[in-house]
Nucleic acid binder design. Structure first.
Lengths: 254, 254
DNA sequence: TTTGCGCTTTGTTCCATATCAAGCGATGGG
DNA sequence: CCCATCGCTTGATATGGAACAAAGCGCAAA
Protein backbone atom coordinates (compact mmCIF):
# COMPACT_ATOMS: atom_id res chain seq x y z
CA UNK A 1 0.00 0.00 0.00
CA UNK A 2 1.51 3.28 -1.08
CA UNK A 3 1.72 5.90 1.63
CA UNK A 4 -0.55 8.72 0.54
CA UNK A 5 1.35 11.41 2.40
CA UNK A 6 -0.50 13.10 5.19
CA UNK A 7 -3.91 12.89 3.67
CA UNK A 8 -5.38 12.03 7.08
CA UNK A 9 -4.56 15.59 8.03
CA UNK A 10 -6.54 17.06 5.16
CA UNK A 11 -9.99 18.40 5.92
CA UNK A 12 -12.87 16.16 5.03
CA UNK A 13 -13.48 16.32 1.30
CA UNK A 14 -15.88 19.16 0.62
CA UNK A 15 -18.79 18.43 -1.68
CA UNK A 16 -18.48 20.38 -4.87
CA UNK A 17 -21.90 20.42 -6.50
CA UNK A 18 -22.25 16.67 -6.62
CA UNK A 19 -23.45 15.80 -3.18
CA UNK A 20 -23.30 12.07 -3.37
CA UNK A 21 -20.00 10.85 -4.71
CA UNK A 22 -16.90 11.18 -2.59
CA UNK A 23 -14.18 13.41 -3.92
CA UNK A 24 -10.53 12.88 -3.19
CA UNK A 25 -10.15 16.17 -1.36
CA UNK A 26 -7.36 17.57 -3.47
CA UNK A 27 -8.14 21.15 -4.53
CA UNK A 28 -6.29 20.57 -7.82
CA UNK A 29 -8.78 17.87 -8.68
CA UNK A 30 -11.59 20.38 -8.91
CA UNK A 31 -9.78 22.37 -11.54
CA UNK A 32 -8.79 19.41 -13.66
CA UNK A 33 -5.21 19.58 -12.46
CA UNK A 34 -5.17 16.06 -11.07
CA UNK A 35 -3.15 13.17 -12.50
CA UNK A 36 -3.29 9.41 -11.93
CA UNK A 37 -0.17 9.52 -9.77
CA UNK A 38 -1.52 12.30 -7.56
CA UNK A 39 -4.93 10.76 -7.01
CA UNK A 40 -5.17 9.32 -3.50
CA UNK A 41 -8.08 7.12 -4.50
CA UNK A 42 -5.79 5.28 -6.88
CA UNK A 43 -2.75 5.34 -4.61
CA UNK A 44 -4.65 3.78 -1.75
CA UNK A 45 -5.99 1.01 -3.93
CA UNK A 46 -2.65 0.01 -5.33
CA UNK A 47 0.55 -1.74 -4.42
CA UNK A 48 3.96 -1.24 -5.94
CA UNK A 49 5.40 -3.90 -8.20
CA UNK A 50 8.86 -4.10 -9.74
CA UNK A 51 9.78 -5.43 -13.16
CA UNK A 52 13.22 -5.95 -14.64
CA UNK A 53 14.18 -4.96 -18.16
CA UNK A 54 12.52 -7.35 -20.58
CA UNK A 55 9.91 -8.64 -18.14
CA UNK A 56 6.40 -9.11 -19.45
CA UNK A 57 3.81 -7.32 -17.30
CA UNK A 58 0.95 -8.97 -19.17
CA UNK A 59 0.32 -10.62 -22.51
CA UNK A 60 -2.09 -9.57 -25.22
CA UNK A 61 -5.33 -11.48 -24.53
CA UNK A 62 -4.69 -11.89 -20.80
CA UNK A 63 -7.56 -11.36 -18.41
CA UNK A 64 -8.18 -7.64 -18.02
CA UNK A 65 -8.24 -7.60 -14.24
CA UNK A 66 -5.60 -5.07 -13.23
CA UNK A 67 -4.70 -1.47 -13.95
CA UNK A 68 -1.09 -0.27 -13.83
CA UNK A 69 0.32 3.22 -13.42
CA UNK A 70 3.98 3.70 -14.26
CA UNK A 71 5.92 5.18 -11.34
CA UNK A 72 9.37 4.96 -12.92
CA UNK A 73 10.83 3.42 -16.04
CA UNK A 74 9.15 2.91 -19.39
CA UNK A 75 6.63 0.27 -20.48
CA UNK A 76 6.21 -0.82 -24.08
CA UNK A 77 2.76 -1.84 -25.34
CA UNK A 78 2.79 -3.91 -28.52
CA UNK A 79 0.64 -6.08 -30.74
CA UNK A 80 1.99 -9.12 -32.52
CA UNK A 81 0.82 -10.74 -35.75
CA UNK A 82 0.98 -14.51 -36.05
CA UNK A 83 3.85 -14.26 -38.53
CA UNK A 84 5.94 -12.25 -36.11
CA UNK A 85 5.32 -8.74 -37.39
CA UNK A 86 5.07 -6.40 -34.43
CA UNK A 87 3.56 -2.97 -33.93
CA UNK A 88 4.38 -1.00 -30.82
CA UNK A 89 1.21 0.91 -29.94
CA UNK A 90 2.61 3.09 -27.21
CA UNK A 91 5.30 3.72 -24.66
CA UNK A 92 4.04 4.45 -21.16
CA UNK A 93 6.27 6.86 -19.24
CA UNK A 94 6.17 7.71 -15.52
CA UNK A 95 2.74 9.03 -14.65
CA UNK A 96 1.01 7.21 -17.50
CA UNK A 97 -1.67 4.57 -17.10
CA UNK A 98 -0.31 1.62 -19.08
CA UNK A 99 -3.78 0.87 -20.40
CA UNK A 100 -7.35 1.02 -19.23
CA UNK A 101 -8.70 -1.72 -21.44
CA UNK A 102 -12.31 -2.33 -22.35
CA UNK A 103 -13.80 -5.76 -22.06
CA UNK A 104 -12.50 -8.95 -20.54
CA UNK A 105 -9.15 -9.12 -22.29
CA UNK A 106 -6.30 -6.67 -22.64
CA UNK A 107 -5.51 -5.47 -26.15
CA UNK A 108 -1.73 -5.55 -26.22
CA UNK A 109 1.32 -7.00 -24.52
CA UNK A 110 2.99 -4.79 -21.90
CA UNK A 111 6.70 -5.19 -21.24
CA UNK A 112 9.29 -3.30 -19.22
CA UNK A 113 12.02 -1.94 -21.51
CA UNK A 114 14.06 -0.92 -18.46
CA UNK A 115 13.67 -1.48 -14.72
CA UNK A 116 10.12 -0.41 -13.97
CA UNK A 117 8.12 0.41 -10.87
CA UNK A 118 4.37 0.37 -11.30
CA UNK A 119 1.43 1.00 -9.08
CA UNK A 120 -0.78 -2.03 -9.56
CA UNK A 121 -4.44 -2.20 -8.61
CA UNK A 122 -7.39 -4.38 -9.41
CA UNK A 123 -9.69 -3.22 -12.14
CA UNK A 124 -12.61 -3.87 -9.80
CA UNK A 125 -11.29 -1.44 -7.22
CA UNK A 126 -10.60 1.22 -9.86
CA UNK A 127 -14.09 0.84 -11.26
CA UNK A 128 -15.53 0.94 -7.79
CA UNK A 129 -13.73 4.19 -7.05
CA UNK A 130 -14.77 5.63 -10.39
CA UNK A 131 -18.42 4.93 -9.71
CA UNK A 132 -18.08 6.66 -6.34
CA UNK A 133 -15.96 9.63 -7.32
CA UNK A 134 -16.92 12.20 -9.91
CA UNK A 135 -13.42 13.60 -10.05
CA UNK A 136 -11.75 10.22 -10.53
CA UNK A 137 -14.29 9.40 -13.20
CA UNK A 138 -13.41 12.63 -15.01
CA UNK A 139 -9.71 11.98 -14.51
CA UNK A 140 -9.87 8.53 -16.08
CA UNK A 141 -11.86 9.94 -18.97
CA UNK A 142 -9.14 12.56 -19.51
CA UNK A 143 -6.50 9.83 -19.38
CA UNK A 144 -8.24 7.70 -21.97
CA UNK A 145 -9.00 10.67 -24.22
CA UNK A 146 -5.33 11.62 -24.03
CA UNK A 147 -4.37 8.16 -25.20
CA UNK A 148 -6.89 8.38 -28.01
CA UNK A 149 -5.45 11.69 -29.11
CA UNK A 150 -1.95 10.26 -29.05
CA UNK A 151 -3.05 7.20 -31.02
CA UNK A 152 -4.56 9.41 -33.72
CA UNK A 153 -1.41 11.46 -34.06
CA UNK A 154 0.50 8.19 -34.24
CA UNK A 155 -1.86 7.19 -37.05
CA UNK A 156 -0.96 10.30 -39.00
CA UNK A 157 2.73 9.51 -38.57
CA UNK A 158 2.38 5.95 -39.83
CA UNK A 159 0.05 6.82 -42.66
CA UNK A 160 1.54 9.98 -44.06
CA UNK A 161 5.02 10.85 -42.79
CA UNK A 162 8.33 9.85 -44.37
CA UNK A 163 10.81 7.78 -42.39
CA UNK A 164 12.88 10.88 -41.59
CA UNK A 165 9.83 12.79 -40.40
CA UNK A 166 8.68 9.91 -38.21
CA UNK A 167 12.02 9.55 -36.47
CA UNK A 168 12.33 13.29 -35.96
CA UNK A 169 8.82 13.59 -34.54
CA UNK A 170 9.37 10.57 -32.31
CA UNK A 171 12.62 11.87 -30.86
CA UNK A 172 10.98 15.22 -30.12
CA UNK A 173 8.40 13.44 -28.00
CA UNK A 174 11.04 11.33 -26.26
CA UNK A 175 12.94 14.52 -25.44
CA UNK A 176 9.75 15.99 -23.99
CA UNK A 177 8.83 12.94 -21.94
CA UNK A 178 12.32 11.97 -20.74
CA UNK A 179 13.47 15.50 -20.04
CA UNK A 180 16.71 17.08 -21.21
CA UNK A 181 19.63 18.05 -19.00
CA UNK A 182 21.27 21.49 -19.02
CA UNK A 183 23.05 20.65 -22.28
CA UNK A 184 19.80 19.65 -23.93
CA UNK A 185 20.82 16.00 -23.85
CA UNK A 186 18.21 13.33 -23.26
CA UNK A 187 18.26 9.57 -22.96
CA UNK A 188 16.37 7.44 -25.46
CA UNK A 189 15.24 4.48 -23.34
CA UNK A 190 14.17 2.22 -26.19
CA UNK A 191 16.24 0.17 -28.62
CA UNK A 192 16.39 0.84 -32.35
CA UNK A 193 14.16 -2.19 -32.82
CA UNK A 194 11.54 -0.71 -30.52
CA UNK A 195 11.67 2.61 -32.34
CA UNK A 196 11.32 0.80 -35.66
CA UNK A 197 8.33 -1.18 -34.45
CA UNK A 198 6.70 1.96 -33.11
CA UNK A 199 7.32 3.88 -36.33
CA UNK A 200 6.44 1.13 -38.79
CA UNK A 201 10.00 1.00 -40.14
CA UNK A 202 12.94 -1.39 -40.05
CA UNK A 203 15.81 -1.13 -37.64
CA UNK A 204 18.17 -0.33 -40.51
CA UNK A 205 16.07 2.59 -41.71
CA UNK A 206 15.89 4.03 -38.20
CA UNK A 207 19.64 3.70 -37.82
CA UNK A 208 20.27 5.35 -41.17
CA UNK A 209 17.96 8.26 -40.44
CA UNK A 210 19.54 8.87 -37.04
CA UNK A 211 22.99 8.81 -38.67
CA UNK A 212 21.82 11.27 -41.30
CA UNK A 213 20.37 13.59 -38.63
CA UNK A 214 23.72 13.47 -36.84
CA UNK A 215 25.67 14.17 -40.04
CA UNK A 216 23.44 17.08 -41.01
CA UNK A 217 23.66 18.58 -37.54
CA UNK A 218 20.03 18.20 -36.51
CA UNK A 219 21.11 16.22 -33.48
CA UNK A 220 24.28 15.72 -31.54
CA UNK A 221 25.03 12.18 -30.35
CA UNK A 222 26.70 11.42 -27.04
CA UNK A 223 26.13 7.70 -27.33
CA UNK A 224 23.72 5.54 -29.30
CA UNK A 225 21.00 6.29 -26.78
CA UNK A 226 21.88 9.74 -25.58
CA UNK A 227 21.54 12.76 -27.81
CA UNK A 228 20.52 16.41 -28.03
CA UNK A 229 18.69 18.41 -30.63
CA UNK A 230 20.81 21.22 -32.05
CA UNK A 231 19.78 24.46 -30.41
CA UNK A 232 20.53 26.60 -33.44
CA UNK A 233 18.63 25.62 -36.53
CA UNK A 234 21.07 25.76 -39.42
CA UNK A 235 20.33 25.62 -43.13
CA UNK A 236 21.17 21.95 -43.09
CA UNK A 237 18.81 20.85 -40.40
CA UNK A 238 16.03 23.17 -41.42
CA UNK A 239 15.69 21.62 -44.85
CA UNK A 240 12.55 20.14 -46.30
CA UNK A 241 13.45 16.72 -44.95
CA UNK A 242 12.80 17.53 -41.31
CA UNK A 243 9.17 18.34 -41.27
CA UNK A 244 6.79 19.98 -38.80
CA UNK A 245 7.00 17.70 -35.80
CA UNK A 246 4.66 19.72 -33.67
CA UNK A 247 2.04 19.27 -36.30
CA UNK A 248 2.16 15.53 -35.94
CA UNK A 249 2.55 14.53 -32.35
CA UNK A 250 1.19 15.64 -29.06
CA UNK A 251 2.48 14.47 -25.74
CA UNK A 252 0.24 12.41 -23.52
CA UNK A 253 -0.26 15.02 -20.80
CA UNK A 254 -3.29 14.52 -18.61
CA UNK B 1 -35.77 17.52 -29.65
CA UNK B 2 -35.91 13.88 -30.53
CA UNK B 3 -38.99 12.04 -29.33
CA UNK B 4 -37.80 9.46 -26.86
CA UNK B 5 -40.66 7.07 -27.45
CA UNK B 6 -42.94 6.49 -24.53
CA UNK B 7 -40.42 6.94 -21.83
CA UNK B 8 -42.89 8.92 -19.78
CA UNK B 9 -44.73 5.67 -19.34
CA UNK B 10 -41.72 3.90 -17.92
CA UNK B 11 -41.55 3.48 -14.16
CA UNK B 12 -39.38 5.93 -12.33
CA UNK B 13 -35.74 4.92 -12.69
CA UNK B 14 -34.87 2.52 -9.89
CA UNK B 15 -31.66 3.17 -8.01
CA UNK B 16 -29.19 0.40 -8.61
CA UNK B 17 -26.61 0.58 -5.86
CA UNK B 18 -25.61 4.15 -6.56
CA UNK B 19 -28.26 6.11 -4.76
CA UNK B 20 -27.37 9.55 -5.90
CA UNK B 21 -26.96 9.73 -9.62
CA UNK B 22 -30.00 9.35 -11.83
CA UNK B 23 -30.10 6.37 -14.15
CA UNK B 24 -31.85 6.36 -17.46
CA UNK B 25 -34.26 3.65 -16.46
CA UNK B 26 -33.46 1.27 -19.26
CA UNK B 27 -32.92 -2.25 -17.92
CA UNK B 28 -30.34 -2.89 -20.67
CA UNK B 29 -28.24 -0.08 -19.28
CA UNK B 30 -27.59 -2.00 -16.09
CA UNK B 31 -26.10 -4.89 -17.96
CA UNK B 32 -23.90 -2.83 -20.21
CA UNK B 33 -26.20 -3.32 -23.19
CA UNK B 34 -26.85 0.35 -23.73
CA UNK B 35 -25.62 2.35 -26.73
CA UNK B 36 -25.41 6.10 -27.39
CA UNK B 37 -28.44 5.96 -29.68
CA UNK B 38 -30.57 4.13 -27.13
CA UNK B 39 -29.70 6.37 -24.20
CA UNK B 40 -32.62 8.68 -23.40
CA UNK B 41 -30.34 11.05 -21.53
CA UNK B 42 -28.52 11.77 -24.79
CA UNK B 43 -31.61 11.74 -26.97
CA UNK B 44 -33.36 14.30 -24.83
CA UNK B 45 -30.38 16.61 -24.86
CA UNK B 46 -29.97 16.60 -28.62
CA UNK B 47 -31.53 17.90 -31.76
CA UNK B 48 -31.31 16.40 -35.22
CA UNK B 49 -29.17 18.08 -37.85
CA UNK B 50 -28.82 17.25 -41.51
CA UNK B 51 -25.70 17.46 -43.62
CA UNK B 52 -25.34 16.94 -47.36
CA UNK B 53 -22.57 14.93 -48.95
CA UNK B 54 -19.35 16.89 -48.67
CA UNK B 55 -20.53 19.20 -45.89
CA UNK B 56 -18.09 19.94 -43.12
CA UNK B 57 -19.57 19.28 -39.68
CA UNK B 58 -16.62 20.90 -37.95
CA UNK B 59 -13.01 21.74 -38.70
CA UNK B 60 -9.91 20.49 -36.91
CA UNK B 61 -9.15 23.06 -34.24
CA UNK B 62 -12.73 24.30 -33.90
CA UNK B 63 -14.13 24.94 -30.47
CA UNK B 64 -15.00 21.62 -28.84
CA UNK B 65 -18.49 22.56 -27.75
CA UNK B 66 -20.76 19.92 -29.29
CA UNK B 67 -21.04 16.15 -29.40
CA UNK B 68 -22.54 14.38 -32.40
CA UNK B 69 -24.02 10.92 -32.73
CA UNK B 70 -24.53 9.58 -36.23
CA UNK B 71 -28.15 8.57 -36.87
CA UNK B 72 -27.76 7.74 -40.55
CA UNK B 73 -25.03 8.13 -43.15
CA UNK B 74 -21.28 8.07 -42.62
CA UNK B 75 -18.97 10.75 -41.24
CA UNK B 76 -15.28 10.94 -42.10
CA UNK B 77 -12.81 12.21 -39.50
CA UNK B 78 -9.48 13.36 -40.91
CA UNK B 79 -6.32 15.26 -40.08
CA UNK B 80 -4.56 17.45 -42.59
CA UNK B 81 -0.89 18.38 -42.80
CA UNK B 82 0.01 21.87 -44.01
CA UNK B 83 1.35 20.47 -47.27
CA UNK B 84 -1.95 18.78 -48.05
CA UNK B 85 -1.20 15.24 -46.94
CA UNK B 86 -4.29 13.81 -45.30
CA UNK B 87 -4.90 10.96 -42.88
CA UNK B 88 -8.41 9.74 -42.28
CA UNK B 89 -8.57 8.73 -38.61
CA UNK B 90 -11.94 7.10 -38.63
CA UNK B 91 -15.30 6.65 -40.27
CA UNK B 92 -18.28 7.09 -37.97
CA UNK B 93 -21.23 4.88 -38.90
CA UNK B 94 -24.81 5.05 -37.59
CA UNK B 95 -24.76 4.65 -33.83
CA UNK B 96 -21.22 5.98 -33.46
CA UNK B 97 -20.23 9.06 -31.54
CA UNK B 98 -18.28 11.12 -34.08
CA UNK B 99 -15.79 12.14 -31.43
CA UNK B 100 -15.75 12.95 -27.74
CA UNK B 101 -12.75 15.22 -27.80
CA UNK B 102 -10.63 16.21 -24.85
CA UNK B 103 -9.77 19.83 -24.24
CA UNK B 104 -11.02 23.00 -25.84
CA UNK B 105 -10.44 22.10 -29.47
CA UNK B 106 -11.48 19.17 -31.58
CA UNK B 107 -8.72 16.99 -32.97
CA UNK B 108 -9.85 16.35 -36.51
CA UNK B 109 -12.14 17.59 -39.25
CA UNK B 110 -15.52 15.86 -39.53
CA UNK B 111 -17.27 15.72 -42.90
CA UNK B 112 -20.32 13.97 -44.27
CA UNK B 113 -19.33 11.60 -47.09
CA UNK B 114 -23.00 11.04 -47.90
CA UNK B 115 -26.24 12.60 -46.67
CA UNK B 116 -26.00 12.42 -42.90
CA UNK B 117 -28.39 12.82 -39.99
CA UNK B 118 -26.77 13.42 -36.64
CA UNK B 119 -28.02 13.95 -33.15
CA UNK B 120 -26.27 17.09 -32.01
CA UNK B 121 -25.96 18.18 -28.39
CA UNK B 122 -23.85 20.58 -26.42
CA UNK B 123 -20.80 19.21 -24.72
CA UNK B 124 -21.90 20.96 -21.55
CA UNK B 125 -25.17 19.07 -21.46
CA UNK B 126 -23.44 15.76 -22.14
CA UNK B 127 -20.95 16.39 -19.38
CA UNK B 128 -23.72 17.45 -17.08
CA UNK B 129 -25.59 14.23 -17.73
CA UNK B 130 -22.42 12.21 -17.30
CA UNK B 131 -21.76 13.73 -13.90
CA UNK B 132 -25.30 12.88 -12.88
CA UNK B 133 -25.63 9.43 -14.33
CA UNK B 134 -23.41 6.51 -13.49
CA UNK B 135 -24.67 4.49 -16.42
CA UNK B 136 -24.11 7.27 -18.97
CA UNK B 137 -20.66 7.84 -17.55
CA UNK B 138 -19.88 4.15 -18.02
CA UNK B 139 -21.42 4.19 -21.48
CA UNK B 140 -19.26 7.08 -22.64
CA UNK B 141 -16.20 5.38 -21.22
CA UNK B 142 -17.06 2.26 -23.22
CA UNK B 143 -17.54 4.39 -26.33
CA UNK B 144 -14.15 6.06 -25.96
CA UNK B 145 -12.38 2.82 -25.11
CA UNK B 146 -13.91 1.29 -28.22
CA UNK B 147 -12.49 4.09 -30.32
CA UNK B 148 -9.11 3.63 -28.69
CA UNK B 149 -9.19 -0.07 -29.47
CA UNK B 150 -10.10 0.66 -33.08
CA UNK B 151 -7.34 3.27 -33.36
CA UNK B 152 -4.76 0.76 -32.13
CA UNK B 153 -5.85 -1.84 -34.63
CA UNK B 154 -5.69 0.85 -37.29
CA UNK B 155 -2.13 1.53 -36.12
CA UNK B 156 -1.20 -2.10 -36.70
CA UNK B 157 -2.64 -1.91 -40.21
CA UNK B 158 -0.70 1.21 -41.12
CA UNK B 159 2.53 0.10 -39.52
CA UNK B 160 2.75 -3.53 -40.49
CA UNK B 161 0.28 -4.67 -43.16
CA UNK B 162 0.87 -4.72 -46.92
CA UNK B 163 -1.39 -2.70 -49.20
CA UNK B 164 -3.39 -5.82 -50.12
CA UNK B 165 -3.85 -6.78 -46.48
CA UNK B 166 -4.97 -3.28 -45.55
CA UNK B 167 -7.61 -3.10 -48.27
CA UNK B 168 -8.89 -6.57 -47.46
CA UNK B 169 -9.12 -5.87 -43.74
CA UNK B 170 -10.80 -2.55 -44.41
CA UNK B 171 -13.44 -4.00 -46.71
CA UNK B 172 -14.22 -6.70 -44.14
CA UNK B 173 -15.03 -3.99 -41.62
CA UNK B 174 -17.10 -2.03 -44.13
CA UNK B 175 -19.08 -5.18 -44.85
CA UNK B 176 -19.65 -5.62 -41.14
CA UNK B 177 -20.69 -2.05 -40.49
CA UNK B 178 -22.75 -1.46 -43.64
CA UNK B 179 -24.43 -4.84 -43.63
CA UNK B 180 -24.70 -7.21 -46.57
CA UNK B 181 -27.88 -8.10 -48.45
CA UNK B 182 -29.05 -11.66 -49.12
CA UNK B 183 -26.45 -12.02 -51.88
CA UNK B 184 -23.68 -10.92 -49.56
CA UNK B 185 -23.38 -7.62 -51.40
CA UNK B 186 -22.58 -4.46 -49.49
CA UNK B 187 -22.16 -0.83 -50.40
CA UNK B 188 -18.84 0.91 -49.83
CA UNK B 189 -19.88 4.45 -48.97
CA UNK B 190 -16.47 6.07 -49.31
CA UNK B 191 -14.49 7.01 -52.42
CA UNK B 192 -11.22 5.40 -53.40
CA UNK B 193 -9.50 8.57 -52.21
CA UNK B 194 -11.06 8.21 -48.76
CA UNK B 195 -10.04 4.58 -48.57
CA UNK B 196 -6.52 5.52 -49.59
CA UNK B 197 -6.30 8.26 -46.98
CA UNK B 198 -7.60 5.90 -44.30
CA UNK B 199 -5.16 3.16 -45.28
CA UNK B 200 -2.08 5.30 -45.83
CA UNK B 201 -1.97 4.45 -49.54
CA UNK B 202 -2.56 6.21 -52.84
CA UNK B 203 -5.79 6.05 -54.77
CA UNK B 204 -4.04 4.15 -57.57
CA UNK B 205 -2.80 1.45 -55.21
CA UNK B 206 -6.27 0.99 -53.72
CA UNK B 207 -7.77 0.72 -57.18
CA UNK B 208 -5.16 -1.80 -58.28
CA UNK B 209 -5.63 -3.96 -55.19
CA UNK B 210 -9.40 -3.99 -55.60
CA UNK B 211 -9.00 -4.95 -59.26
CA UNK B 212 -6.64 -7.73 -58.27
CA UNK B 213 -9.06 -9.01 -55.63
CA UNK B 214 -11.77 -9.06 -58.26
CA UNK B 215 -9.57 -10.88 -60.78
CA UNK B 216 -8.48 -13.49 -58.25
CA UNK B 217 -12.07 -14.06 -57.12
CA UNK B 218 -11.78 -12.80 -53.56
CA UNK B 219 -14.57 -10.34 -54.23
CA UNK B 220 -17.31 -9.95 -56.77
CA UNK B 221 -17.97 -6.41 -58.05
CA UNK B 222 -21.44 -5.12 -58.89
CA UNK B 223 -20.28 -1.55 -59.36
CA UNK B 224 -17.28 0.43 -58.20
CA UNK B 225 -18.89 0.84 -54.79
CA UNK B 226 -20.92 -2.29 -54.42
CA UNK B 227 -19.32 -5.68 -53.95
CA UNK B 228 -19.47 -9.02 -52.16
CA UNK B 229 -16.85 -11.26 -50.64
CA UNK B 230 -16.73 -14.66 -52.29
CA UNK B 231 -18.54 -17.15 -50.08
CA UNK B 232 -16.39 -20.09 -51.06
CA UNK B 233 -12.72 -19.64 -50.37
CA UNK B 234 -10.85 -20.94 -53.41
CA UNK B 235 -7.15 -21.60 -53.78
CA UNK B 236 -6.79 -18.26 -55.51
CA UNK B 237 -8.33 -16.11 -52.84
CA UNK B 238 -6.89 -18.06 -49.95
CA UNK B 239 -3.32 -17.38 -50.96
CA UNK B 240 -0.69 -15.73 -48.87
CA UNK B 241 -1.64 -12.32 -50.19
CA UNK B 242 -4.91 -12.03 -48.32
CA UNK B 243 -3.88 -12.12 -44.75
CA UNK B 244 -5.70 -12.57 -41.43
CA UNK B 245 -8.16 -9.69 -41.35
CA UNK B 246 -9.71 -10.64 -38.06
CA UNK B 247 -6.32 -10.37 -36.49
CA UNK B 248 -6.05 -6.75 -37.49
CA UNK B 249 -9.32 -4.94 -37.11
CA UNK B 250 -12.12 -4.92 -34.64
CA UNK B 251 -15.42 -3.24 -35.18
CA UNK B 252 -16.42 -0.32 -33.02
CA UNK B 253 -19.23 -2.05 -31.15
CA UNK B 254 -20.19 -0.47 -27.87
C1' DT C 1 -27.72 13.61 -77.88
C1' DT C 2 -23.61 15.93 -76.84
C1' DT C 3 -20.44 17.90 -73.72
C1' DG C 4 -17.99 18.26 -69.67
C1' DC C 5 -16.51 16.78 -65.31
C1' DG C 6 -15.21 13.84 -61.57
C1' DC C 7 -14.00 9.44 -60.36
C1' DT C 8 -11.81 5.18 -61.47
C1' DT C 9 -8.78 2.18 -63.87
C1' DT C 10 -4.59 0.97 -66.20
C1' DG C 11 0.25 1.56 -67.83
C1' DT C 12 5.04 3.08 -67.00
C1' DT C 13 8.75 4.76 -64.49
C1' DC C 14 11.09 5.90 -60.33
C1' DC C 15 12.32 6.05 -55.61
C1' DA C 16 11.96 5.31 -50.58
C1' DT C 17 12.36 1.79 -47.83
C1' DA C 18 12.92 -3.28 -47.18
C1' DT C 19 16.03 -6.97 -47.42
C1' DC C 20 20.29 -9.27 -47.29
C1' DA C 21 24.95 -9.15 -45.72
C1' DA C 22 29.02 -7.59 -43.38
C1' DG C 23 31.50 -4.98 -40.14
C1' DC C 24 32.11 -2.45 -35.71
C1' DG C 25 32.30 -1.35 -30.83
C1' DA C 26 30.92 -2.00 -26.39
C1' DT C 27 30.30 -5.40 -22.58
C1' DG C 28 30.80 -9.46 -19.84
C1' DG C 29 32.32 -14.27 -18.85
C1' DG C 30 35.87 -17.60 -18.82
C1' DC D 1 43.27 -10.91 -22.04
C1' DC D 2 40.52 -13.04 -25.43
C1' DC D 3 36.48 -14.33 -27.31
C1' DA D 4 31.49 -14.49 -27.74
C1' DT D 5 27.52 -11.84 -27.79
C1' DC D 6 24.63 -8.17 -28.62
C1' DG D 7 23.07 -3.98 -30.34
C1' DC D 8 24.09 -0.84 -33.74
C1' DT D 9 25.83 0.85 -38.19
C1' DT D 10 26.87 0.67 -42.98
C1' DG D 11 26.79 -1.07 -47.75
C1' DA D 12 24.69 -3.36 -51.83
C1' DT D 13 20.68 -4.75 -54.03
C1' DA D 14 15.69 -5.66 -54.53
C1' DT D 15 10.99 -4.29 -54.53
C1' DG D 16 6.40 -2.50 -53.17
C1' DG D 17 4.07 1.27 -53.68
C1' DA D 18 4.31 6.30 -55.21
C1' DA D 19 4.20 9.43 -58.93
C1' DC D 20 3.12 10.67 -63.36
C1' DA D 21 0.31 10.08 -67.41
C1' DA D 22 -3.60 9.00 -69.99
C1' DA D 23 -7.68 6.63 -71.13
C1' DG D 24 -12.43 4.79 -69.77
C1' DC D 25 -16.82 5.48 -67.70
C1' DG D 26 -20.98 7.21 -65.63
C1' DC D 27 -23.70 11.02 -64.69
C1' DA D 28 -25.64 15.53 -64.96
C1' DA D 29 -26.15 19.80 -67.30
C1' DA D 30 -26.79 21.98 -71.74
Amino acid sequence: MLASLDRQALPKAPMYGRTSAADCGLPACQTGGCTPMKCPLLQDAGSVRLFAKGDVIYWDGDLNDRVYIVLSGVVRGSKLLSDGRRQVCRFAFPGDVVDYARGDEVGFTAEAIMPVRVLSMTRASVEGSISQSACLSALMMRVVLGELDAARNHLLMLGRLSAAERVQAFLKVVEERMGADEHGAFKVPMSRQDMADYLGLTIETVSRVVSQMKRSGVIQMFSANRMAFAKVQTEANNGRDWAPAGECLSQAAV
